[in-house]
Design a protein around this nucleic acid. Structure first.
Lengths: 132, 132
DNA sequence: TATATCCCTAGTAATTTAGTAGGAATTAAT
DNA sequence: ATTAATTCCTACTAAATTACTAGGGATATA
């Protein structure tokens, strides 16, 4: 039940982009500012791009930029992208063995909702401004 | 960000104990009813015992029993016992590097509180009766 | 005394996480 | 056109964690 460093790193990267909204930031810059290696950040950014959270520009003076205003992107969306959709048990959306059905199901489903509701209420703008 | 099967198994076991409160259940019985192997359950139960959630009796006709009424034991307590105190990031209680300080700290601390508050409101009695 | 149980520790297999590494494709600047 | 900076893609590997398996000792009941 840990948030992976991948998710935390990714969140750091988009927070940095939120603080510099409008400007393209390269992986080199982002790596420097977050302390994550370039190559690993590349992979993380590629996932964020696939999920429509960031856009990219190739070539010299290219880089990454948020695909929308920081106030319109929730922390939840970022974390779900990098954390297997935040599925805290294997059966949030059905299709599980005996352990999941029955008794515990409602418990985990509600916990899942609470977690997502909380994270969806916080925008990258808020996070960047530490206004939480 | 997954709940481990260890935690789910343990929760199943104590739920079974809640349904049979007052009666000692052996690991053999608990293993049968939960579908977990005896040996693995033993380890899980030993952790729960160490954390004061269950009591044990050795020898023939021994087994495990809840250490308190099912309505007095929260799901949160059980899960924290088996899930490294539910520390969703490495620095919930301070002592972390650059990634944890600053920006994301308050985010994770609050999420941690929400998760615990939710799980602490649900008792084993409620869970056993699927009254969630 | 026999048997059923908990208790303790060590080992291992499988999975996931966290990176490393190399190089192709693309674009802007010169 | 050439160069340099960048994203993009894929494969590999190392480390950590999870999920068990296994053996046997200690203890209590019948």
């Amino acid at each position: 039940m840990k948030i992976s460093s991948k998710a935390r790193y990714g969140l750091y990267a988009v927070t940095e982009m939120a603080r510099n909204y409008g400007e393209y930031l390269s992986t080199v810059e982002l790596a420097e500012r977050t302390g994550v290696t370039e190559k690993y950040l590349e992979q993380i950014l590629s996932i964020l791009k696939k999920n429509g959270i960031v856009k990219s520009a190739r070539g010299a003076s290219g880089g990454y930029i948020l695909s929308d205003l920081p106030e319109n992107i929730s922390v939840g969306r970022v974390i779900r992208s990098l954390e297997n959709n935040l599925e805290i048990v294997g059966c949030i959306n059905g299709g599980c063995g005996k352990m999941c059905g029955c008794t515990q199901r409602s418990l985990w489903e509600k916990l899942y909702s609470y977690i997502n509701d909380y994270l969806d209420k916080i925008s990258l703008k808020q996070l960047a401004e530490e206004n939480i």
